[in-house]
Amino acid sequence: MISRLPLDEQLTTLKSVLSRNEMLLEVLDRTATLGLPGWYVTAGCLFQTVWNVVTDRHPSSGIKDYDVFYFDSRDLSWEAEDRVIRAAAEAFTGLPTQVEVRNEARVHLWYEEKFGVACAPYASTEEAIDSFAATTCCLGVRLEPGGAWRVYAPHGLSDVFSLVVRPNPVLAPREVYETKTARWRQQWPELTVLDWPSAPTEPARSSS
């Protein structure tokens, strides 16, 4: 099984598997030209490509968009982020898919309004990836100068290759996890989705 390979071989296999998604490679190549600080292509386009290859589907099957995260805390205005989004839209012109570019330094400004829980400011793109609703999703890839791949996978790759979705209750609420996993199960019924952990119970107080 791929998930039982040594970590260095898992990384080699990951690159081989992701390289079968030609759209992903094009997004990586074009994003590298934008000069975004701390950028990664991340989220569904990565782990879903792996799921597709492992289950003998087309590499891009069911992937609705490609997410690009970057981190720039120098200007947290919407106008600054919008300028980057517009420049990225030009770079991705002609691609038959949606590419969403977001500055993770700004997430705390809108997260609570959208998801109902507060989000402390992130210190890096990696920290933003750490907060995905499932540990399986915590994966990012970018191209370094010279074309080398940089892979960020704080929880390893075994669950990704094994089609296991494991909750990550550090920020996103339970409803987000359950909504996402229900949608993924429809596309990839082979997934093993682990339950959101129950709330810890307070220890009984002893009477004296």
Rank of each mutant, 00 (worst) to 15 (best):
R205N: 06
P200G: 07
S19H: 09
L46P: 11
A172F: 14
F69M: 02
L28S: 01
L11N: 13
F92P: 06
A43H: 11
W196M: 03
L24I: 09
T136I: 08
D8A: 14
L34F: 13
G156T: 12
R174E: 14
E112R: 12
V164C: 10
T97Q: 12
T12V: 05
E144V: 04
C119V: 05
N21H: 06
T97Y: 02
A182D: 00
R57L: 05
Q48W: 08
V160H: 04
Y40R: 13
R57V: 06
L109W: 03
L28P: 11
Y152D: 09
D29G: 10
S198V: 14
V101Q: 06
S19E: 09
G140Q: 12
W196Q: 11
D65Y: 13
V165H: 09
T49Q: 10
P167I: 09
L14C: 00
S198D: 15
H155R: 06
V141C: 00
G146C: 11
A43F: 01
A153I: 05
T181L: 01
Q48A: 14
Y40W: 13
L7K: 00
E178P: 00
H58A: 15
T93V: 12
E100M: 10
A87R: 15
T93C: 06
L95N: 07
Y70A: 04
A120H: 06
R74P: 01
A91T: 04
Q10N: 08
P203M: 05
T135G: 03
P59N: 11
P59H: 08
W110Q: 05
A118S: 15
I2F: 10
A105H: 06
F92H: 04
R205Q: 11
L194E: 15
E22R: 10
A128I: 08
L191W: 07
V151C: 12
Q186I: 01
W39T: 07
P154Q: 13
P189E: 02
A128Q: 03
V165Y: 05
D8H: 11
L14N: 02
E9A: 14
V141M: 05
L191F: 06
E9V: 07
L46M: 08
A91N: 02
V141L: 14
M1G: 07
T31P: 14
L46G: 09
T125C: 11
G44M: 04
Q186M: 02
K64N: 07
D56E: 15
I63T: 01
P145D: 11
D29P: 00
T42C: 15
S61N: 05
